[in-house]
């Protein structure tokens, strides 16, 4: 019981870190056609995430791998149920990844245009669809007693699912714009700053609507009402959102970005805590729901994997924080000109 509960929250944590890190890449990629007016702007935006996106994306691989290892039945049922949505995400991520590497290798406007489009689609689509997927999980998915999904891609595109998608896109847009204020310079940094100011009320509005809609469409609040101390988590989310605005007004952009990170993590945990112990609730009958207890691996595997994760993840965090420190300054013209980079 304890082991499965620990794994449930570790699982949530890995997804939260993925959204916190790769989230700003998705945001910058989505803003790319709108903020990238000149060739220099575009290269600046690519360089802002260039050294980090690859390591960020591994949080997704790890979250996926850990889902497979700790909750195999959930991994099997979730990914086959969400087949079309997940495949769209994967194709999008493939295109995004190669675009960075390919774009500047050929000096042709048409070639660059292709990869520019891929950067946008490859960032926007995953941001939206991950939101849709998680909102649907919060809400419950039509799976029957055999774990077979009774629906299709359009079943997922219901109002609450779409609202989740919009929330994720807003979170990542602001997260990305804030990262740009840190790493870009001159005009681009200023435009990113003023955009952050405009995005903030939008995000706040959407977040409030999502919190209310969660009460109407999902059973997430049951855990909170049973244990009111848990309301601390959404309270942290609110404080973090307010913090973004506060630090933005102070022009403390790195702190604003950290507040945005805290917002993302606490938003994910708001959902994860409400979900517990369900991993994949069935909207047909609660009996068919997959939980941390009926979908988990054997105790031996959970123990071995816990040791592996407790040993490796702190090390990963340490070297990733080092990498972030190395690449958190303004991108210089010298770096943009350096031909070894993208």
């Amino acid at each position: 019981m304890v082991l499965q509960t620990v794994w449930f929250f570790l699982w949530g944590l890995l997804w939260a870190i993925f959204f916190m890190t790769d989230g700003f890449d998705f945001g910058i990629g989505t803003l790319y056609p709108f903020l990238g007016k000149s060739e220099r702007d575009k290269n600046m935006m690519i360089h802002a995430m260039g050294p980090l996106w690859d390591g960020n994306e591994v949080w997704l691989i790890t979250a996926g791998g850990v889902t497979f290892a700790a909750f195999p039945l959930f991994y099997a049922v979730m990914f086959s149920s969400l087949y079309s949505a997940l495949m769209l995400i994967l194709f999008a991520l493939i295109l995004r990844g190669v675009s960075f590497e390919f774009r500047n290798k050929v000096e042709s406007p048409a070639w660059k245009k292709v990869w520019d489009t891929c950067i946008f689609v490859g960032s926007f689509l995953p941001a939206l669809l991950f939101g849709v997927a998680f909102a649907n999980i919060f809400q419950g998915v039509p799976i029957d007693q055999d774990g077979i999904f009774q629906g299709n891609l359009f079943t997922l595109l219901n109002p609450y699912g779409l609202l989740g998608g919009v929330l994720f896109v807003c979170l990542f847009l602001l997260h990305g714009a804030l990262w740009l204020t840190i790493r870009a310079d001159g005009d681009l940094a200023q435009r990113a700053e003023s955009l952050s100011g405009k995005l903030w009320p939008v995000l706040t509005g959407v977040a409030v609507v999502f919190l209310v809609a969660s009460y109407i469409f999902t059973p997430l609040y049951n855990n909170y009402l049973a244990n009111p101390v848990l309301f601390l988590v959404p309270a942290i989310a609110v404080a973090a959102i307010v913090g973004i605005k506060y630090f933005l007004m102070q022009k403390a952009f790195f702190k604003a970005w950290l507040a945005s990170s805290a917002t993302i993590v606490s938003c994910i945990f708001f959902g994860i805590i409400g979900l517990y112990p369900n991993l994949f609730p069935s909207s047909i009958d609660a009996k068919y729901s997959l939980t941390a207890f009926n979908a988990s691996s054997s105790p031996l595997t959970l123990k071995i994997m816990l040791i592996v994760v407790l040993l490796s993840i702190p090390v990963v965090l340490a070297y990733q924080i080092w990498a972030y420190k190395l690449f958190s300054g303004k991108v210089t013209d010298e770096e943009l000109a350096h031909e070894e980079t993208y």
Binding site: A69, F71, Y75, S298
Partner: peptide, 17 residues
């Protein structure tokens, strides 16, 4: 996946982490 995740899934997760 449901049949082998206990073992096969662990190896993939270790590879990633």
């Amino acid at each position: 996946s449901a049949y082998v995740g206990d073992i096969f899934g662990s190896l993939l997760a270790i590879e990633a982490s």
